[in-house]
Simulated scan of single mutants.
Amino acid sequence: MDLVIGPLDLSAHVDEALAVQAAAFGLGPDEVAVRRQIVLRHMTYAGARALGATEQGRLVGFVYGMPNDRAHWWSTVVEPYLRARDNDAWLDDSFVITELHVHPAHQNRGLGRALITTITDAATQPRSILSAIDRDSPARGLYHSLGYQDLARQVLFPSAPKPYAVMGATLPLRRRSPAGR
């Protein structure tokens, strides 16, 4: 396997990345079109960075994020949920993982773990936050194994059909023990 993880010009490769996200998340063309505009806007924010995983030149996974800003839309939605649990300080001095997706044909190989640990290892903030669909899933299992804890659950985003959990972890993220735990 010729798998390479490295910096990704997400604006230039947005359609490839969204094809991976659509396959991983089951998105239709209308949702992809909306997300395309969001990704392009996010990449203009200060400190926004992306990594891609390519195999034989084809993008098979990506992650992007940025220093959190309370004025960003995501923060304004999650802040009341975090405040209700006295966790809203997590919105300050955190690196937010905006998206992390691996094509289904490449999942369960440690690629998501490698992408998220690599991007957060370069963060200057002392902690990381993210949101994930609030159900038991391989993604939530990965985040828990890396040290993310639930900061708020049943978070409702406008137009999202399912509730999300907001999770946070101190950096650097937890690594697997030598025994693989």
Rank of each mutant, 00 (worst) to 15 (best):
M1W: 15
M1H: 15
D2Q: 13
D2M: 05
G6D: 09
G6C: 05
D9G: 13
L10E: 05
A12Q: 08
A12Y: 04
E16I: 03
E16K: 02
E16A: 04
E16D: 03
Q21N: 09
A22I: 11
A22Q: 10
A22G: 10
A22M: 12
L27N: 10
L27C: 12
G28L: 08
P29S: 06
A33Y: 11
V34N: 14
V34F: 14
R35C: 08
R36Y: 01
I38C: 11
L40E: 03
L40N: 01
R41Y: 09
R41G: 00
H42N: 15
A46W: 06
A48G: 06
R49G: 07
L51K: 04
L51C: 03
G52T: 06
Q56T: 13
G57N: 08
R58F: 06
R58C: 08
L59D: 12
V60D: 02
V60K: 02
Y64V: 00
Y64Q: 01
N68T: 02
N68E: 06
D69K: 13
W74A: 05
V77H: 12
E79C: 11
Y81I: 06
R83N: 08
R83M: 04
R85Y: 15
D86C: 10
N87E: 14
N87W: 13
D88V: 00
D92G: 01
F95Y: 15
F95T: 14
I97N: 00
T98I: 11
T98V: 13
H101P: 00
H101R: 15
H106I: 07
H106E: 07
Q107K: 09
N108F: 14
N108M: 09
N108S: 12
G110H: 13
G112E: 08
A114D: 05
A114G: 11
T117H: 06
T118L: 05
A123L: 04
T124S: 11
S131G: 12
I133Q: 15
D134H: 04
D134L: 01
D136L: 12
S137P: 06
P138C: 07
P138M: 12
A139W: 07
G141P: 02
S145A: 05
L146M: 01
Q149M: 07
Q154L: 07
F157C: 02
P158Y: 07
A165Q: 03
A165H: 05
A165D: 12
M167S: 03
T170E: 11
P172H: 13
P172R: 02
R174Y: 06
P178S: 12
